[in-house]
Amino acid sequence: MIQINNSDKLPLNEITKSVSDLQIGETALISTVGDDCIDIHCHCLRLMELGFTPGQEVTIVAKSPFKDPVAVSIRGTIIALRKSEAECIKIL
């Protein structure tokens, strides 16, 4: 657990895009993970441990019919992430 101030997420920087903005089949490189997460319950460390590290290539394999969760290909496997989780992963 990362112990940081218990306040809500900062407003997202409008320029930075995240994995949740990608369409099916689109590929991108991860820039940062959880840079602007100040949420105490943030799971960014776990996302990193799963292999979502800066510089890695991610591809959207599929989206559920409700557009959430999304299936993301990373490091040779596919991981399904909820939209809120995918938003923590910023892309170039």
């Binding site: 105490i40 319950h41 799971h43 776990r46 996302l47 799963l50 394999v61 969760p69 299936a71 496997t77 596919i78 991981i79 399904a80 992430l81 909820r82 989780e85």
Partner: peptide, 12 residues
């Protein structure tokens, strides 16, 4: 709860 719901499920 403090335990936030996560999904993060590998699709094998």
């Amino acid at each position: 709860t403090n335990e936030k719901s996560t999904f993060m499920l590998e699709l094998p």
